[in-house]
Design a protein around this nucleic acid. Structure first.
Lengths: 178, 178
DNA sequence: CTTAACATACCATCTGGACGGTATACTTTC
DNA sequence: GAAAGTATACCGTCCAGATGGTATGTTAAG
Protein backbone atom coordinates (compact mmCIF):
# COMPACT_ATOMS: atom_id res chain seq x y z
CA UNK A 1 0.00 0.00 0.00
CA UNK A 2 2.35 2.73 -1.11
CA UNK A 3 1.16 6.27 -0.88
CA UNK A 4 -0.99 7.07 -3.84
CA UNK A 5 -1.49 10.66 -4.84
CA UNK A 6 -4.44 12.46 -3.42
CA UNK A 7 -5.85 12.94 -6.89
CA UNK A 8 -5.93 9.22 -7.48
CA UNK A 9 -7.48 8.71 -4.06
CA UNK A 10 -10.27 11.03 -5.07
CA UNK A 11 -10.85 9.23 -8.35
CA UNK A 12 -11.05 5.91 -6.57
CA UNK A 13 -13.45 7.38 -4.07
CA UNK A 14 -15.66 8.62 -6.89
CA UNK A 15 -15.67 5.19 -8.49
CA UNK A 16 -16.61 3.64 -5.20
CA UNK A 17 -19.50 6.04 -4.73
CA UNK A 18 -20.85 5.23 -8.18
CA UNK A 19 -20.47 1.52 -7.58
CA UNK A 20 -22.19 1.57 -4.23
CA UNK A 21 -24.82 4.22 -4.61
CA UNK A 22 -25.33 4.75 -8.33
CA UNK A 23 -24.65 7.63 -10.62
CA UNK A 24 -27.29 9.90 -9.14
CA UNK A 25 -25.51 9.83 -5.83
CA UNK A 26 -22.15 10.74 -7.21
CA UNK A 27 -22.10 14.08 -5.43
CA UNK A 28 -19.16 16.20 -4.44
CA UNK A 29 -20.04 15.73 -0.79
CA UNK A 30 -20.21 11.97 -1.05
CA UNK A 31 -16.97 11.78 -2.99
CA UNK A 32 -15.19 14.04 -0.54
CA UNK A 33 -16.42 12.04 2.42
CA UNK A 34 -15.37 8.78 0.80
CA UNK A 35 -11.94 10.22 0.05
CA UNK A 36 -11.62 11.50 3.60
CA UNK A 37 -11.33 15.16 2.75
CA UNK A 38 -13.66 18.13 2.70
CA UNK A 39 -15.61 19.39 -0.23
CA UNK A 40 -13.39 22.42 -0.42
CA UNK A 41 -10.37 20.17 -0.60
CA UNK A 42 -11.95 18.14 -3.35
CA UNK A 43 -12.76 21.25 -5.34
CA UNK A 44 -9.18 22.35 -5.03
CA UNK A 45 -8.06 19.32 -7.00
CA UNK A 46 -11.04 19.09 -9.34
CA UNK A 47 -12.65 22.50 -9.70
CA UNK A 48 -16.00 21.15 -10.88
CA UNK A 49 -17.97 17.96 -11.02
CA UNK A 50 -17.38 17.74 -14.72
CA UNK A 51 -13.66 18.00 -14.13
CA UNK A 52 -13.91 15.16 -11.66
CA UNK A 53 -15.65 12.89 -14.12
CA UNK A 54 -13.18 13.94 -16.79
CA UNK A 55 -10.44 12.89 -14.42
CA UNK A 56 -12.04 9.50 -13.91
CA UNK A 57 -12.30 8.89 -17.63
CA UNK A 58 -8.78 9.95 -18.44
CA UNK A 59 -7.36 7.89 -15.63
CA UNK A 60 -9.07 4.71 -16.66
CA UNK A 61 -8.33 5.30 -20.33
CA UNK A 62 -4.64 5.56 -19.53
CA UNK A 63 -4.77 2.45 -17.41
CA UNK A 64 -6.35 0.41 -20.13
CA UNK A 65 -4.12 1.74 -22.85
CA UNK A 66 -1.12 0.72 -20.86
CA UNK A 67 -2.43 -2.72 -19.93
CA UNK A 68 -3.26 -3.66 -23.49
CA UNK A 69 -0.11 -2.14 -24.81
CA UNK A 70 2.05 -4.10 -22.38
CA UNK A 71 0.20 -7.27 -23.21
CA UNK A 72 0.65 -6.83 -26.93
CA UNK A 73 4.31 -6.00 -26.65
CA UNK A 74 4.98 -9.03 -24.49
CA UNK A 75 3.46 -11.30 -27.14
CA UNK A 76 6.20 -13.18 -29.04
CA UNK A 77 3.99 -13.68 -32.09
CA UNK A 78 3.24 -10.61 -34.12
CA UNK A 79 0.20 -11.74 -36.03
CA UNK A 80 -2.93 -11.25 -33.96
CA UNK A 81 -1.17 -9.87 -30.92
CA UNK A 82 -3.48 -6.88 -30.50
CA UNK A 83 -6.57 -9.02 -30.74
CA UNK A 84 -5.18 -11.41 -28.16
CA UNK A 85 -4.20 -8.54 -25.90
CA UNK A 86 -7.69 -7.09 -26.10
CA UNK A 87 -9.32 -10.41 -25.33
CA UNK A 88 -6.93 -11.29 -22.54
CA UNK A 89 -7.11 -8.01 -20.73
CA UNK A 90 -10.87 -7.77 -20.94
CA UNK A 91 -11.46 -11.32 -19.80
CA UNK A 92 -8.79 -11.59 -17.17
CA UNK A 93 -7.52 -8.28 -15.96
CA UNK A 94 -10.23 -5.74 -16.39
CA UNK A 95 -12.58 -6.54 -13.59
CA UNK A 96 -10.64 -6.50 -10.37
CA UNK A 97 -11.93 -3.05 -9.84
CA UNK A 98 -14.67 -2.03 -12.17
CA UNK A 99 -13.36 1.44 -12.78
CA UNK A 100 -14.08 1.29 -16.44
CA UNK A 101 -17.71 0.52 -15.78
CA UNK A 102 -18.38 3.33 -13.41
CA UNK A 103 -16.26 5.83 -15.22
CA UNK A 104 -18.09 5.13 -18.43
CA UNK A 105 -21.47 5.43 -16.81
CA UNK A 106 -20.54 8.63 -15.10
CA UNK A 107 -19.12 10.08 -18.30
CA UNK A 108 -22.17 9.13 -20.30
CA UNK A 109 -24.31 10.75 -17.67
CA UNK A 110 -22.40 13.96 -17.33
CA UNK A 111 -21.73 15.17 -20.83
CA UNK A 112 -21.24 14.03 -24.36
CA UNK A 113 -17.64 15.00 -24.82
CA UNK A 114 -16.39 13.60 -21.55
CA UNK A 115 -16.27 10.29 -23.41
CA UNK A 116 -13.75 11.62 -25.88
CA UNK A 117 -10.71 9.93 -24.33
CA UNK A 118 -12.53 6.61 -24.59
CA UNK A 119 -13.46 7.25 -28.18
CA UNK A 120 -9.87 7.92 -29.04
CA UNK A 121 -8.78 4.80 -27.24
CA UNK A 122 -11.29 2.67 -29.09
CA UNK A 123 -10.51 4.05 -32.51
CA UNK A 124 -6.90 3.33 -31.85
CA UNK A 125 -7.54 -0.26 -30.80
CA UNK A 126 -9.88 -0.87 -33.67
CA UNK A 127 -7.23 0.28 -36.13
CA UNK A 128 -4.65 -2.00 -34.54
CA UNK A 129 -7.03 -4.94 -34.47
CA UNK A 130 -7.91 -4.58 -38.11
CA UNK A 131 -4.30 -4.28 -39.06
CA UNK A 132 -3.23 -7.27 -37.04
CA UNK A 133 -2.66 -9.80 -39.81
CA UNK A 134 -5.96 -11.61 -39.28
CA UNK A 135 -9.08 -11.40 -41.38
CA UNK A 136 -10.34 -7.93 -40.38
CA UNK A 137 -13.98 -8.96 -40.16
CA UNK A 138 -13.23 -11.95 -38.00
CA UNK A 139 -10.93 -9.83 -35.86
CA UNK A 140 -13.70 -7.29 -35.46
CA UNK A 141 -16.14 -9.98 -34.45
CA UNK A 142 -13.73 -11.27 -31.82
CA UNK A 143 -13.48 -7.78 -30.50
CA UNK A 144 -17.21 -7.22 -30.52
CA UNK A 145 -17.84 -10.47 -28.68
CA UNK A 146 -15.34 -9.37 -26.07
CA UNK A 147 -17.20 -6.11 -25.75
CA UNK A 148 -20.39 -8.11 -25.37
CA UNK A 149 -19.02 -9.84 -22.29
CA UNK A 150 -18.15 -6.47 -21.03
CA UNK A 151 -21.62 -5.06 -21.61
CA UNK A 152 -23.25 -7.85 -19.69
CA UNK A 153 -21.02 -7.22 -16.71
CA UNK A 154 -21.40 -3.48 -16.95
CA UNK A 155 -25.15 -3.61 -16.73
CA UNK A 156 -25.19 -6.75 -14.68
CA UNK A 157 -27.78 -7.98 -17.12
CA UNK A 158 -27.20 -11.66 -17.20
CA UNK A 159 -24.70 -13.81 -15.51
CA UNK A 160 -22.64 -15.99 -17.76
CA UNK A 161 -21.40 -19.06 -15.94
CA UNK A 162 -17.70 -19.40 -15.33
CA UNK A 163 -17.34 -22.51 -17.45
CA UNK A 164 -19.12 -20.99 -20.38
CA UNK A 165 -17.18 -17.78 -20.11
CA UNK A 166 -13.99 -19.80 -20.18
CA UNK A 167 -15.13 -21.77 -23.20
CA UNK A 168 -15.96 -18.54 -25.01
CA UNK A 169 -12.58 -17.15 -24.07
CA UNK A 170 -10.77 -20.17 -25.40
CA UNK A 171 -12.66 -20.19 -28.66
CA UNK A 172 -11.91 -16.51 -29.20
CA UNK A 173 -8.25 -17.09 -28.41
CA UNK A 174 -8.21 -19.97 -30.85
CA UNK A 175 -9.60 -17.72 -33.58
CA UNK A 176 -7.07 -15.08 -32.75
CA UNK A 177 -4.31 -17.56 -33.53
CA UNK A 178 -5.53 -18.66 -36.94
CA UNK B 1 -49.76 8.52 -36.29
CA UNK B 2 -52.72 6.95 -34.58
CA UNK B 3 -53.63 8.11 -31.14
CA UNK B 4 -51.25 6.56 -28.73
CA UNK B 5 -52.12 6.29 -25.11
CA UNK B 6 -51.00 9.09 -22.89
CA UNK B 7 -48.89 6.69 -20.89
CA UNK B 8 -46.90 5.76 -23.96
CA UNK B 9 -46.58 9.42 -24.88
CA UNK B 10 -45.01 10.03 -21.52
CA UNK B 11 -42.57 7.17 -21.90
CA UNK B 12 -41.52 8.44 -25.31
CA UNK B 13 -41.09 11.90 -23.91
CA UNK B 14 -38.88 10.53 -21.15
CA UNK B 15 -36.75 8.70 -23.72
CA UNK B 16 -36.42 11.85 -25.72
CA UNK B 17 -35.31 13.82 -22.71
CA UNK B 18 -32.63 11.28 -21.91
CA UNK B 19 -31.45 11.21 -25.51
CA UNK B 20 -31.23 14.95 -25.83
CA UNK B 21 -30.13 16.08 -22.42
CA UNK B 22 -28.67 13.06 -20.67
CA UNK B 23 -29.74 11.08 -17.66
CA UNK B 24 -29.13 13.83 -15.16
CA UNK B 25 -31.73 15.96 -16.85
CA UNK B 26 -34.40 13.33 -16.85
CA UNK B 27 -36.58 15.30 -14.45
CA UNK B 28 -40.29 15.16 -13.91
CA UNK B 29 -40.61 18.75 -15.11
CA UNK B 30 -38.70 18.14 -18.31
CA UNK B 31 -40.59 14.95 -19.06
CA UNK B 32 -43.93 16.60 -18.45
CA UNK B 33 -43.05 19.55 -20.66
CA UNK B 34 -41.84 17.27 -23.42
CA UNK B 35 -45.05 15.25 -23.19
CA UNK B 36 -47.10 18.43 -23.27
CA UNK B 37 -48.72 18.03 -19.88
CA UNK B 38 -48.13 19.37 -16.40
CA UNK B 39 -46.11 17.74 -13.70
CA UNK B 40 -49.28 16.98 -11.81
CA UNK B 41 -50.65 15.24 -14.86
CA UNK B 42 -47.51 13.19 -15.21
CA UNK B 43 -47.58 12.18 -11.57
CA UNK B 44 -51.14 11.04 -12.01
CA UNK B 45 -49.93 8.37 -14.43
CA UNK B 46 -46.59 7.60 -12.86
CA UNK B 47 -46.68 8.45 -9.18
CA UNK B 48 -42.90 8.70 -8.81
CA UNK B 49 -39.80 9.02 -10.86
CA UNK B 50 -38.90 5.46 -10.13
CA UNK B 51 -42.28 4.36 -11.41
CA UNK B 52 -41.65 6.32 -14.58
CA UNK B 53 -38.33 4.61 -15.22
CA UNK B 54 -39.88 1.28 -14.38
CA UNK B 55 -42.49 2.03 -17.01
CA UNK B 56 -39.81 2.80 -19.57
CA UNK B 57 -38.00 -0.44 -18.91
CA UNK B 58 -41.07 -2.62 -19.00
CA UNK B 59 -42.29 -1.00 -22.17
CA UNK B 60 -39.08 -1.51 -24.07
CA UNK B 61 -38.65 -5.03 -22.72
CA UNK B 62 -42.08 -5.93 -24.06
CA UNK B 63 -41.31 -4.34 -27.40
CA UNK B 64 -38.13 -6.31 -27.83
CA UNK B 65 -39.57 -9.53 -26.65
CA UNK B 66 -42.31 -9.23 -29.22
CA UNK B 67 -40.01 -8.23 -32.08
CA UNK B 68 -37.63 -11.10 -31.57
CA UNK B 69 -40.44 -13.51 -30.95
CA UNK B 70 -42.17 -12.54 -34.19
CA UNK B 71 -38.95 -12.79 -36.09
CA UNK B 72 -38.17 -16.25 -34.78
CA UNK B 73 -41.63 -17.53 -35.44
CA UNK B 74 -41.59 -16.25 -39.00
CA UNK B 75 -38.38 -18.17 -39.69
CA UNK B 76 -39.09 -21.28 -41.79
CA UNK B 77 -35.97 -23.07 -40.54
CA UNK B 78 -36.03 -24.17 -36.95
CA UNK B 79 -32.34 -24.63 -36.31
CA UNK B 80 -30.74 -21.35 -35.35
CA UNK B 81 -33.88 -19.29 -35.64
CA UNK B 82 -33.48 -17.55 -32.29
CA UNK B 83 -29.92 -16.63 -33.01
CA UNK B 84 -30.90 -15.22 -36.38
CA UNK B 85 -33.81 -13.34 -34.85
CA UNK B 86 -31.53 -11.81 -32.25
CA UNK B 87 -28.98 -10.75 -34.83
CA UNK B 88 -31.54 -9.44 -37.29
CA UNK B 89 -33.51 -7.40 -34.82
CA UNK B 90 -30.46 -5.88 -33.21
CA UNK B 91 -28.78 -5.00 -36.49
CA UNK B 92 -31.78 -3.88 -38.46
CA UNK B 93 -34.74 -3.04 -36.33
CA UNK B 94 -33.55 -1.90 -33.01
CA UNK B 95 -32.22 1.54 -33.72
CA UNK B 96 -34.96 3.52 -35.30
CA UNK B 97 -35.65 4.94 -31.93
CA UNK B 98 -33.05 4.19 -29.35
CA UNK B 99 -35.49 3.44 -26.58
CA UNK B 100 -33.51 0.50 -25.39
CA UNK B 101 -30.44 2.61 -24.94
CA UNK B 102 -32.00 5.34 -22.92
CA UNK B 103 -34.23 3.07 -20.93
CA UNK B 104 -31.26 0.97 -19.94
CA UNK B 105 -29.20 3.95 -18.93
CA UNK B 106 -32.04 5.40 -16.94
CA UNK B 107 -32.70 2.11 -15.22
CA UNK B 108 -29.06 1.59 -14.37
CA UNK B 109 -28.97 5.09 -12.94
CA UNK B 110 -32.13 4.91 -10.90
CA UNK B 111 -32.00 1.65 -9.04
CA UNK B 112 -30.60 -1.83 -9.20
CA UNK B 113 -33.80 -3.74 -9.47
CA UNK B 114 -35.37 -1.58 -12.13
CA UNK B 115 -33.32 -3.65 -14.55
CA UNK B 116 -35.10 -6.81 -13.54
CA UNK B 117 -37.37 -6.99 -16.59
CA UNK B 118 -34.29 -6.77 -18.80
CA UNK B 119 -32.53 -9.46 -16.85
CA UNK B 120 -35.46 -11.77 -17.28
CA UNK B 121 -35.58 -11.01 -20.98
CA UNK B 122 -31.91 -11.75 -21.43
CA UNK B 123 -31.95 -14.98 -19.48
CA UNK B 124 -34.82 -16.09 -21.62
CA UNK B 125 -33.04 -15.27 -24.86
CA UNK B 126 -29.83 -16.85 -23.71
CA UNK B 127 -31.64 -20.08 -22.95
CA UNK B 128 -33.28 -20.09 -26.36
CA UNK B 129 -30.05 -19.28 -28.13
CA UNK B 130 -28.19 -22.08 -26.43
CA UNK B 131 -30.94 -24.51 -27.19
CA UNK B 132 -31.20 -23.51 -30.82
CA UNK B 133 -29.53 -26.49 -32.46
CA UNK B 134 -26.19 -24.76 -33.01
CA UNK B 135 -22.99 -25.21 -31.11
CA UNK B 136 -23.87 -23.39 -27.86
CA UNK B 137 -20.52 -21.65 -27.55
CA UNK B 138 -20.56 -20.41 -31.09
CA UNK B 139 -24.16 -19.29 -30.68
CA UNK B 140 -23.18 -17.44 -27.53
CA UNK B 141 -20.32 -15.74 -29.35
CA UNK B 142 -22.67 -14.62 -32.11
CA UNK B 143 -24.91 -13.19 -29.49
CA UNK B 144 -22.08 -11.48 -27.66
CA UNK B 145 -20.77 -9.91 -30.85
CA UNK B 146 -24.24 -8.62 -31.53
CA UNK B 147 -24.30 -7.13 -28.07
CA UNK B 148 -20.94 -5.57 -28.81
CA UNK B 149 -22.38 -3.66 -31.74
CA UNK B 150 -25.05 -2.56 -29.43
CA UNK B 151 -22.64 -1.38 -26.77
CA UNK B 152 -20.73 0.77 -29.22
CA UNK B 153 -23.92 2.48 -30.32
CA UNK B 154 -25.20 2.83 -26.80
CA UNK B 155 -22.14 4.70 -25.65
CA UNK B 156 -21.44 6.17 -29.02
CA UNK B 157 -17.90 5.03 -28.46
CA UNK B 158 -16.70 4.33 -31.92
CA UNK B 159 -18.41 4.48 -35.19
CA UNK B 160 -18.28 1.30 -37.22
CA UNK B 161 -18.58 2.02 -40.93
CA UNK B 162 -21.69 0.86 -42.73
CA UNK B 163 -19.82 -1.52 -44.99
CA UNK B 164 -17.99 -3.15 -42.15
CA UNK B 165 -21.11 -3.43 -40.08
CA UNK B 166 -22.80 -5.15 -42.99
CA UNK B 167 -19.89 -7.53 -43.45
CA UNK B 168 -20.02 -8.40 -39.76
CA UNK B 169 -23.73 -8.93 -40.00
CA UNK B 170 -23.37 -11.26 -42.95
CA UNK B 171 -20.65 -13.30 -41.33
CA UNK B 172 -22.72 -13.71 -38.19
CA UNK B 173 -25.75 -14.70 -40.23
CA UNK B 174 -23.61 -17.23 -42.09
CA UNK B 175 -22.49 -18.75 -38.80
CA UNK B 176 -26.05 -18.85 -37.62
CA UNK B 177 -26.91 -21.07 -40.57
CA UNK B 178 -24.20 -23.66 -40.12
C1' DC C 1 -72.82 13.74 -9.63
C1' DT C 2 -69.10 11.02 -9.62
C1' DT C 3 -64.74 9.77 -11.30
C1' DA C 4 -60.81 10.12 -14.31
C1' DA C 5 -57.58 13.17 -16.01
C1' DC C 6 -55.44 16.63 -15.69
C1' DA C 7 -53.44 21.73 -13.79
C1' DT C 8 -51.48 24.99 -10.17
C1' DA C 9 -49.31 26.22 -6.12
C1' DC C 10 -46.28 25.17 -2.93
C1' DC C 11 -42.69 23.07 0.13
C1' DA C 12 -38.67 20.65 2.10
C1' DT C 13 -34.54 19.04 0.66
C1' DC C 14 -30.44 18.59 -1.79
C1' DT C 15 -26.54 20.11 -4.65
C1' DG C 16 -22.89 22.56 -7.04
C1' DG C 17 -19.78 25.59 -6.22
C1' DA C 18 -18.21 30.27 -4.64
C1' DC C 19 -15.69 32.10 -0.95
C1' DG C 20 -12.95 33.39 3.00
C1' DG C 21 -9.74 31.35 5.94
C1' DT C 22 -5.80 28.47 7.75
C1' DA C 23 -1.55 25.84 8.05
C1' DT C 24 2.56 24.52 6.01
C1' DA C 25 6.33 24.50 2.81
C1' DC C 26 9.15 26.74 -0.32
C1' DT C 27 11.69 30.98 -2.35
C1' DT C 28 13.45 35.18 -2.62
C1' DT C 29 15.47 39.29 -0.76
C1' DC C 30 18.36 41.80 2.09
C1' DG D 1 20.08 33.40 8.01
C1' DA D 2 16.01 35.79 9.17
C1' DA D 3 12.16 38.09 7.50
C1' DA D 4 8.87 38.62 3.93
C1' DG D 5 6.50 37.01 0.24
C1' DT D 6 4.24 33.35 -2.26
C1' DA D 7 2.43 28.88 -3.57
C1' DT D 8 0.16 24.54 -2.18
C1' DA D 9 -3.19 21.93 -0.03
C1' DC D 10 -6.67 21.92 2.31
C1' DC D 11 -11.29 23.25 5.57
C1' DG D 12 -16.14 24.88 6.76
C1' DT D 13 -19.87 27.85 5.60
C1' DC D 14 -23.24 29.80 2.87
C1' DC D 15 -26.60 30.29 -0.84
C1' DA D 16 -29.30 30.36 -5.08
C1' DG D 17 -31.51 27.32 -7.82
C1' DA D 18 -33.27 22.91 -9.02
C1' DT D 19 -36.01 18.85 -7.89
C1' DG D 20 -39.23 15.23 -6.20
C1' DG D 21 -43.33 15.03 -4.38
C1' DT D 22 -47.80 16.66 -1.90
C1' DA D 23 -52.01 18.99 -1.51
C1' DT D 24 -55.54 21.16 -3.58
C1' DG D 25 -57.96 22.81 -7.25
C1' DT D 26 -60.45 22.40 -12.00
C1' DT D 27 -62.59 20.39 -16.05
C1' DA D 28 -64.67 17.09 -19.00
C1' DA D 29 -67.05 12.58 -19.71
C1' DG D 30 -70.45 9.39 -18.81
Amino acid sequence: MGKTSRKVDILNAASKVVSEKGIFNLTLDATAKEAGISKGGLLYHYPSKEALVQGMVEHLANNYREKISNNAEADPVDKGKWVRAYVDVTFNQAYQNKDMHYGLLAAKAVSANSLDPIRELYSDWQRKIEDDGLDPIKATIIRLATDGIWLSELFDIYHIEKDKKKAVYEKLREWANE
